[in-house]
Nucleic acid binder design. Structure first.
Lengths: 201, 201
DNA sequence: ACAGAATTATACCGATCGGTAAAATTCAAC
DNA sequence: GTTGAATTTTACCGATCGGTATAATTCTGT
């Protein structure tokens, strides 16, 4: 059938660049000028490939969940590793990502969700952010509902899976805020240690 | 000497309204139209009274520290109350403010500091936010450097004042993020309880 | 009543916002 | 080589951004 000029950029590379812009500046703070410059394309190409700003944001958010949030979860289910070590490895993997100097500091989802709560970001984008937050909470929840060591811990410490997950997720939102304003990985490791102590580990 | 037309609005009331707008939308997200509408004045009055958007933001931030952040600190130094109760009362006072439906959810400083870290908010405003964060951390720090019960707790739990304050401050940044996206006070009370357990209380 | 000071309301400024129309390019198919 | 599909570039759209000039009001002092 048809030929036509070839795309001069890689869609996934461009999407990753867009993710970094939203990660650094949030939804409203990321202008189309910021995005097109970082992605190395111009506006008509952006609109032809990704739709509009909101659609691009949704795809960037999904990319973040799959390529950032997802990567930490392996530590939660590693066979033959004690529960405490699995949780510590998971939490430190997240916090290390929050502190990583090669990417924007903090957490993409935490930043944009706070922005979304105030106002001003479109409905579908907000839903995607909500699902992104639920992704992490569900991964933690599975540990405390399935793992026998975790269940034993809950009964010993008179806490529930919901409470424990809520505490850990809140703590990670806290470390995200602190990493964003410049705290080091070493400083946040002691925060994680105190957090583990808070759930009896 | 000279007369002239009288101000038709109360400066402090207008400043409080501006604080609520920044609290809800952040610095960049709060447009002059948002601000003037909530403050009940028009742009020339705003500029004559407060300077410009950045100056207004700085004054709103200082107003927040004095009239919101400051009010919680009394619980930290209440005579005749055990350390754990003082900390719990303080933390719950903060979290209750974060959940209060009569004001924007979450923490003004936490929201704007995350925005500032990404970019785009002026230097003086950023400095004021930094000082606002330090205000709360210093209030907590005084407890763990001065209070004899707190010092005893630190030596027993092999932790330092810096680490403990960093943990509690991080936790409050976490509860701020969670309150902002809708968690209830009851849900966050269990987070506070886990946090207190994390420092050995 | 009048003059001058201060605050109001209205209208406007250039810059940037998200988004797009039109024309110039680059390719595949024939 | 020519046609037609797809992507690029350039230029532009109305709306809104922070900020201000101008003029109409409202007050005090004489």
């Amino acid at each position: 059938m048809a030929g036509g000029r070839k795309l001069e950029f890689d869609k996934e590379t461009a999407l990753e660049a867009a993710m970094h812009v939203f990660w650094k500046k949030g939804y409203s703070g990321a202008s189309l000028a910021d995005l097109t410059e970082s992605m190395g394309i111009n506006k008509p190409s952006l609109y032809a490939t990704f739709g509009n700003k909101e659609a691009l944001f949704i795809q960037a958010t999904e990319y973040y969940v799959e390529h950032v949030a997802r990567t930490h979860c392996q530590y939660l289910v590693q066979e033959g590793i004690p529960l405490r070590d699995r949780l510590k490895n998971y939490l430190m993997s997240v916090v290390a990502s929050q502190c990583d100097s090669s990417k924007p500091k903090g957490c993409y989802v935490a930043l944009c969700a706070s922005e979304a709560a105030g106002d001003s970001i479109p409905d579908h984008a907000q839903e995607t952010l909500f699902k992104a937050g639920a992704y992490t909470q569900n991964a933690l929840m599975r540990v405390f509902t399935d793992d026998t060591d975790a269940i034993r811990l809950l009964s010993k410490s008179c806490s529930s899976a919901e409470e424990t997950v809520r505490f850990l997720f809140t703590l990670l939102n806290g470390t995200a805020a602190m990493a964003r304003v410049g705290l080091s990985l070493a400083e946040l490791e002691s925060v994680v240690e105190h957090g583990l102590r808070g759930i009896g580990l």
